[in-house]
């Protein structure tokens, strides 16, 4: 049986072999150059080899405005239907995710090579079972091609597994790095299957005439402009309507006042006309009647004259 000393020597030797081989392999790759930014084991942006050249090489390097990326990504929404059948527009990326993506994609694409993609992991939060909240992760790969920023989703709202972290990081030295998928050109990810609400400059990649929900093609400038324009309309609709309504109401009130005054005048005039009309007809009728009586010799001339004088005295 081997002595403990021999065993320790063997252990030491094998450790040296393992370490030296790993260092040797690592010497060919300068890992630090691949990192664009890393905030935590599960929060980073890195360069990675293009996963497939099936759709051609990327158009890197490229300069994109961070502000325009923010506007373009903020405008990405899909419609979610709740269990009460209420439809709500939901942003694809949260506020913090948009800002991280904008900052580090703009920086990364400025130095990216044509055969490189940028893979990323960013954190988020969502509610589970209505009342429980959990930390989540969003992963994907980004590249610039055909004058558009392409983002392919890998994991969407992947919930942190506390049990996994508790067991594998018992000393709580930091987050455990998950085995994330970063999305692929050749394989659709079923982690995001929503259709994006229509917005100019954004489309979901068509593969054999069918849209791939996990793959966005974004004309940054157009999408940003579209988002800004939509935002203005959304922010000001109530004010414009109010003003128009007020003007209209004022007009109507004035018209009502004028109409009331006019109607009052007309009523007054009509009332006067009615009175005068009724008095005139009565005298005419009486005199006509008197004439008929005289013509028919029903009354004498002297009676006619007396009566006629009385009627005329009523005017």
């Amino acid at each position: 049986m081997k002595s403990i000393q021999n065993q320790l020597y063997t252990l030491f030797f094998i450790s040296l072999v393992v370490i030296s081989n790993t260092l040797f392999a690592a010497s060919f790759f300068d890992e630090e150059e691949d990192i664009i930014w890393q905030g935590a084991p599960n929060n980073y942006f890195k360069y990675d080899d293009q996963d497939s050249t099936k759709y051609g090489k990327n158009e890197h390097p490229v300069e994109l405005e961070e502000k325009e990326i923010i506007d373009a990504l903020t405008g990405l929404e899909f419609t979610e239907t709740s269990i009460l059948n209420v439809e709500t527009d939901v942003s694809v990326f949260s506020y913090s995710q948009v800002r991280l993506l904008a900052e580090y994609l703009s920086k990364g694409l400025l130095k990216a090579k044509s055969g490189q993609d940028i893979i990323f992991v960013v954190g988020g939060k969502r509610s589970k079972l209505i009342v429980l909240k959990t930390k989540t992760f969003l992963t994907g790969r980004a590249f610039y091609k055909d004058n558009k920023l392409n983002i392919i989703i890998g994991e969407y709202d992947f919930a942190r597994n506390a049990a996994f972290e508790t067991v594998l990081d018992p000393g709580d030295t930091g987050e455990i790095a998950y085995n994330f998928s970063f999305g692929s050109r050749t394989s659709r990810s079923k982690n995001f299957e929503e259709n994006i609400n229509r917005i100019s400059g954004v489309s979901q990649k068509l593969i054999k005439k069918k849209p791939r929900q996990d793959w966005f093609e974004i004309d940054i400038k157009l999408a940003a402009e579209s988002y800004i324009a939509n935002k203005k309309v959304k922010e000001n609709p109530v004010t414009n309507q109010d003003r128009a309504l007020k003007i209209e109401a004022a007009k109507l009130a004035k018209q009502r006042r004028e109409m009331r005054a006019e109607m009052a005048r007309i009523r007054k005039d009509m009332s006067k006309q009615d009175n005068s009309s009724s008095t005139t007809r009565s005298i005419e009728e009486r005199i006509t009647t008197l004439d008929e009586l005289l013509s028919k010799e029903l009354i004498s001339q002297e009676e006619y004259a007396v009566k006629r004088k009385e009627i005329l005295n009523d005017i």
Partner: peptide, 22 residues
């Protein structure tokens, strides 16, 4: 929805975070 909203857990959840995993 109403029953879920009345879950005692909601009282805990409003004060912190609860995670179910495995």
């Amino acid at each position: 929805v109403a029953m879920a909203a009345m879950l005692p857990l909601s009282q805990v959840a409003t004060a912190g975070e609860v995670n179910i995993s495995g």
